[in-house]
């Protein structure tokens, strides 16, 4: 095999590999427009049970196997959580979040992102996780200044019982 032919073969292989290397990190992908930020609404929270726990009668307790006797009976299923999010006075999200799990006894969860222009924004988030049908159990308002590409997270901490902005 002539050296010239070998050189030609090498050049073709190297050119193909160079093209592969070039596409391994280019062209650059931009997920959101320049000058925008992301507001993320995400939390995992269990609402109240669908019904209150009920005290069992002595007869009902007697009927249970001795090793499974308990005083109260609590239904597994949980209520859905109702959530609203306003950005700049505009409603961008409202949903009734169903509980997870086949029996509907898991927590409700939300993971939503909103692309907004960088700058000042009035944020209001509200949640209802009890049997009430009017009003809200948790609510937080605030004005935040978002820088370009900032990830602003709205979370809910059940241990504090309130929304967290970070």
């Amino acid at each position: 095999m002539s050296y010239l032919r070998m050189a030609g073969q090498f050049v073709v292989i190297a050119a193909l590999f160079a093209a592969v290397a070039a596409f391994s990190d280019a062209p650059v992908y931009r997920q959101t427009p320049r000058g925008s930020a992301i507001v993320m609404l995400t939390f995992v929270h269990s609402a109240d049970r669908k019904a209150d726990c009920r005290r069992l009668t002595p007869e009902e307790i007697q009927k249970l196997p001795p090793n499974m006797r308990r005083v109260t009976e609590c239904p597994r299923g949980r209520r859905p959580i109702y959530v609203e999010l306003d950005l700049g006075g505009r409603r961008v999200f409202q949903a009734s979040l169903a509980p997870a799990g086949i029996a509907g006894d898991g927590p409700s969860k939300v993971y939503e992102r909103f692309v907004v222009p960088a700058g000042n924004h009035d944020i209001a988030v509200r949640m209802r996780d009890t049997p009430r049908t009017e009003g809200f159990d948790h609510e937080r308002r605030g004005t935040v200044t978002l820088s370009p590409d900032q990830m602003f997270v709205i979370d809910f901490r059940p241990e504090n019982g309130d929304f967290v902005f970070r």
């Binding site: 596409f23 990190d25 280019a26 062209p27 650059v28 992908y29 997920q31 590409d149």
Partner: peptide, 10 residues
């Protein structure tokens, strides 16, 4: 704290 919105993708 910042979204990775601009990346050189493979």
């Amino acid at each position: 704290t910042k979204a990775a919105v601009e990346v050189g993708l493979d």
